[in-house]
Every structure is written in structure tokens, then in C-alpha cells.
Computed example of a mutant assay.
Amino acid sequence: MRIIAIETSCDETGVAIYDDKEGLLSHKLYSQVHIHSKYGGVVPELASRDHIHKIIPLIQSSLNDSDSTSEDIDGIAYTAGPGLIGSILVGASIGHSIAYAWNIPAIPINHMEGHLLAPMLEKIHPTFPFIALLVSGGHTMIVQVIDIGKYKTLGESIDDAAGEALDKTAKLMKLGYPGGPLISHLAQKGTPGRFRFPRPMINHPGLNMSFSGLKTSAANIISVSRNDEQTQADIAYAFQEALCDILIIKCKKALQQTGIKRIVIAGGVSANQRLRKSIEDLAKEIGGTAYYPRIEFCTDNAAMIAYAGMKRLKISKKSNLIIQAKARWPIDTLESTSF
């Protein structure tokens, strides 16, 4: 069984082809960073327009690379949300159009589910159940993954997402966009102890998180500090340490409360090497195991959508012409399935 997948939830156009026996056959990704960087963030209208220009050539390229034709494809998966509604509509509309033309099912996929299942693309992957830290530019949440389609959100950010806080702080520091990789690179030259930022809500009994106060504290320090390279590196180091501490403290509580010893990190911020090291240290501390996707599958991509789509296609091949596009789509509301 072979499936093609489309990812257009934000500012990256992705297409992938996945075979249930041969694995990932093609993985194409076009980033719009060069378009949005001069604005310091994603401009939704520009994002959706660029998806329109890039999606069809990427689909054709993926088919060529995988030596596939329309007759080889058994279904098409597309990101139906959450994300920028204009961008989602591009992928959803094209996905359904292809499904109708090729007479195959169209499978709407939750973008967050795609991220949660991204580590399954690796040879060494977790078994169920596991705790997942899903951390990106738009979402930060701790999820108990019982099975595919069975998710329980244990905690989430009550304000800014971790990735959003990184981007906004990088903008205050005039580093550019996207901010996460820039702060991470700069932090490697930072001096420990020169600055210290607060760790909001770490003593709160629940698993919810907050990053708005951390961002505000950074803004205050940046406004009164010199703008030399070492000072910026020291600020980046302190900010990254605080952000990682918040995430690790909450993850440790989640593991203790559930008794689960497998932890996954996914989403764009999971590419941060300091966070990965912290997760690995936490797993060793509790006698557990940490898992994460390779760097190319941390950010938005169609490979994870293809994997999720294949799993759902095997359960049901039913399809209709209703195009699903949701700016918000809580992962807890997904249909519970067992594979």
C-alpha cells in the first residue's frame, strides 16, 4: 500500500510518499524562511500564495523520485489543521482534488498527531504508551500517548509557545528569523551565571507552563544591556537554560505521575541540542529511554503526515468530498482507533 502526503500548515510546503513495505520513498520540503525573515515572522497571505506556486511541482517531483504513477497511489493524506487556515486550505483543496481525480481516499490528518508520530519513522522508535513533549513555534504541550488516536493532554502553555518565545526574544535581540536556531547557536558562546531568568510555574502543582514572563524578563534585560556579541551570547545562554529547565521540570513531573519511562520530544524546538541533552539526562535519571526524530523530521514535514495517513488509511478507506480545514483542532478530540 502506498500513500502520498501534503503538508501546508504554515510556512513550509511538504510532499512525501510512503509505502507500508518499503518505507519512506520520497520526502520533499520547501521552506519559505527567506520570504518571511524580513518581516520577523510568518505573513499568512504570503505563505498561502507561495504554497500554491510550489505544491504541484513538489508532487510531480515526489512521484518521479519514487518511480510512482497515479495508479500506484492508494490514498492521499493532507494536513487539515491546526495551523494557518489559508495555508491549510491550499493543501486540503489540492489533496481532495487529486483524490477525486484518481479515485482514491483523502485522509485529513491532525498536524499535532503527525509530530507525535514522527519518531515512528526511525528504526529505533518508542512503543506505546509514552509521554511526548510537543514543542514548536505554535504549540507547547505534554501529551500522554496511549496508542495511535488515543491522546491525553496533561499540560500545555497557557500563553506563548516555547518556540514563539524564542522567536520573539530573537527579534528583540535583532538576530533575525526564525529565532530558535539563532539563539541556540549564540548560546554556545555564552557565559554561565552572568544572567538568570525566571522559571515561571515550575512550582505549580499542575503540568501547565508559561513562557510570557520569561520573554518579558528577557525584554527588560535586553533593553538595559549593551548590544555587544558577548552580552548577546550570555543572554541567549541564560534564556535557553531557563526555557529548557521549565520544560524538563514539567516532563519529569509527567513521568512521575504516570509511571511511564519512555519520553518523546517532537516539533521544531526538539531540534535544540541543549533540550535533547536535557531529555536524555532526564531519561537516564529515571531509568527510562528518550526518543526523537532526526532533525529533518522535527520541523513541519510531509513524511510524518504520510506515516499517520497510512495508519489511518489501513483502518478505513472511506472518503467523501468534504474538505476539512481547521485553524484549531485539539488533539484530544481525534477519533480513537486501535491498530
Rank of each mutant, 00 (worst) to 15 (best):
L255V: 05
T231V: 13
G268V: 06
I246V: 15
V224S: 15
A254H: 07
G267V: 03
K261F: 08
I265D: 04
I260D: 08
N227G: 04
K252D: 13
L243S: 13
Q230D: 12
G268L: 04
Q257M: 13
E229S: 13
V264S: 07
A242M: 03
R226H: 12
K250A: 01
A242V: 04
I222M: 04
Q257H: 11
Q256W: 00
I222F: 01
K252Y: 05
I221F: 07
D234A: 01
V269T: 08
Q240Y: 03
S223F: 03
I246T: 14
G268W: 05
L255W: 14
S225T: 10
Q256P: 00
A238H: 08
S225W: 10
C244I: 07
I246E: 14
I246Y: 09
V224E: 15
A254S: 11
L243K: 02
D234L: 00
A238E: 13
K261H: 15
D228K: 06
I222R: 01
D234M: 03
I235E: 08
R226P: 04
T258D: 04
V269E: 08
T231C: 05
V269Q: 06
I235H: 01
Q257N: 14
A242R: 05
Q240K: 02
G268H: 03
Q257T: 12
G267Q: 12
I235D: 09
A254I: 07
A233M: 07
A238Y: 06
S270W: 02
K250M: 02
I249K: 10
A254C: 05
I249F: 09
C244E: 13
R226A: 12
D228L: 11
V224Q: 15
A219V: 02
L247S: 11
A219L: 07
E241Q: 12
I246S: 07
T231M: 05
E229G: 01
G259L: 05
T231I: 14
L247G: 11
L255A: 09
I260P: 00
K261W: 12
F239V: 07
Q232E: 10
G268P: 08
V264M: 06
I246R: 03
I263E: 09
E229D: 15
C244L: 00
L247N: 10
K252C: 00
D245M: 00
A219C: 02
I260S: 03
A254F: 01
S223R: 14
G268C: 03
A238C: 08
N220D: 13
A233L: 09
Q230S: 09
N227C: 01
A238N: 03
D228S: 11
R262V: 06
Y237M: 11
S225K: 09
E229I: 13
N227F: 00
I263Q: 05
A218D: 08
L247Y: 11
K250G: 05
N227Y: 03
A219Q: 12
R262Y: 11
V224W: 06
I221R: 12
I260E: 14
A254L: 06
Q240W: 03
C244D: 12
A233R: 02
A233V: 10
